[in-house]
Design a protein around this nucleic acid. Structure first.
Lengths: 201, 201
DNA sequence: TTCCCGTTCGAACGCTCGTCCGAATCGGGA
DNA sequence: TCCCGATTCGGACGAGCGTTCGAACGGGAA
């Protein structure tokens, strides 16, 4: 599964053939089907194991913490650190979310909902005035900062992963601590024309 | 190209067959090859057109603006608005970045480097003390908030796209306006064990 | 009307894919 | 030593893929 994650992460789930995985693991093509009933099940098991481990460690670190800010700190650092330590698996989890179908897809979606809900509730508690900012939008902004990591992070040239978590947490907490300016204000001088560009002629 | 973008966005580049595009456009399978020399060229042209339009509009809006904060405001709002107006194309651009090969890939990478460099320089100017935070990390945190949009944004239930841009811009500017706490501080009590989870037994 | 050329398409080609089957192999208990 | 269940694998199968080719179409110029 570890080797498969790396193959999926590098080539993408669809471009990676079962023969690629066979070569990467040293197990013969048909030998793989002794352990996994299909390529999709293999992807599912990778995602499931990854998610379950992430959630399990999180709930351990979260035990007994009441302050929402402290809880969010633990969440962000846990997420980012896990990302750094399991880059291939987390890339597969982030990037191949739509590849699963049927019950496989549903089971992963359930876990995702659980996790997002946890963060979402935490964010709601931190936002003092509930109309100050839409908690859903703000939550996904946070997930964006964290989940985008796989597209650019290179351990050999970038800061340590722990530092990364601190920076993202800091930006987020400081970013939502001051009330947002109301709607209507903004770049009024911006070009209002031209929406979908393929229609322009 | 518009219809193809939607097919690629919905099914993913690899899972989408040329026959799917044929069905979505009403053009016969071989008829498509009168306009495009390959499936990959079609993907390339979508990404290129999308990027070029984005950059073109940006440079128009940016003309004459000196203040780095104002420039960044225009960048973020332009990016997010463009994202909202061309969700399918931007999903393809964000999600299928690794699908291109050879010269196609290089040409898109060049544009990406140009764009990221523009934002990066802007962020550097805003960060007063250059050692306060790593500009590269901060820049990609911003891109993360913006580019993650395609995974969750639903126009019918979420805030308007312009509001979204304002929120992201606000989080980012407030988030980087105060000096980051130094390294070393953090969750010292966090579980230090267990890095890659597939090795745990 | 005839010709021509830009456009469209049905049908097929070769290839790679995920999956399966039946045989070969291995190692510990009787 | 023999046996048996667990494990491994070479080789094949059918399906779907991207791509090609030669024929057909259609409308403006001569």
């Amino acid at each position: 599964m570890r080797a498969s994650s790396e193959v999926f992460a590098e080539k993408g789930y669809d471009r990676a053939s079962v023969r690629d995985i066979s070569a990467a693991t040293g197990i013969s093509l048909s030998g793989l089907y002794y352990y996994f009933s299909s390529k999709e099940e293999l992807l599912f098991l990778i995602q499931k194991t990854c998610f379950d481990t992430l959630l399990e460690r999180l709930s351990k670190d979260l035990a007994g913490l009441d302050s929402p800010v402290k809880r969010l700190s633990v969440i962000v650092r846990n997420h980012v650190r896990f990302f750094g330590d399991n880059m291939a698996e987390m890339k597969v989890l982030s990037h191949e979310a739509d590849a699963l179908t049927g019950d496989y897809r549903k089971e992963i979606s359930d876990r995702k909902r659980t996790y997002v809900g946890l963060v979402h509730r935490c964010v709601e508690e931190i936002l003092e005035a509930p109309d100050a900012a839409n908690p859903r939008v703000v939550t996904f902004a946070l997930f964006g900062m964290m989940n985008w990591i796989y597209t650019w992070y290179r351990p050999e040239k970038d800061d340590s992963i722990d530092r990364l978590g601190s920076v993202i947490l800091h930006i987020f907490l400081e970013g939502i601590s001051s009330r947002l300016p109301n709607q209507g204000k903004g770049v009024a001088e911006a070009d209002p024309s031209g929406l979908p560009f393929f229609d322009k002629n």
